[in-house]
């Protein structure tokens, strides 16, 4: 079966940070397509998550990935369907009822 190849950097440039920018890809993507990731320098975690969704939904294959994009996709893929482990941090909480209290709190913390 011949797979159609889409070079992502031609569509979206070498830095892809916005999930919504992938709408352009979504409009032309078909099942079993190949996404050529060569010349992509950076993808955000949000973009990686969206690409994983395309991977699952359209059975697509990625080729030409840089070390960075491979690591980002791998990291997101690994955690995508797992429950989050959340660490509650120690933090203070202060309610300021008026401006005087606020100014006093901000200058002291």
């Amino acid at each position: 079966m011949k797979r159609n190849t889409i070079k992502l950097s031609t569509l979206l440039g070498e830095n892809i940070t916005s999930r919504s920018s992938l709408q352009i890809l979504c409009n032309i993507l078909k099942s079993n397509d190949v996404i050529d990731m060569s010349d992509i320098v950076f993808i955000s975690r949000s973009v990686a998550d969206e690409l994983c969704y395309f991977e699952e939904s359209y059975n697509i294959m990625f080729v030409g990935m840089s070390d960075f994009t491979r690591k980002m996709l791998s990291l997101v893929r690994k955690n995508r369907n797992k429950p989050r482990k959340r660490q509650e941090q120690d933090s203070k909480f202060v309610v300021c009822d008026d401006i005087e209290t606020l100014l006093s709190v901000v200058s002291s913390i």
Binding site: Q89, D90, S91, K92, F93, V94, V95, C96, D97, D98, I99, T101, L102, V105, V106, I109
Partner: peptide
Amino acid sequence: HREEAENNIFIELPKSI
């Protein structure tokens, strides 16, 4: 919210701001 090495705090502003 402010976070630094030894300081992690959430502040609720007065309703006037």
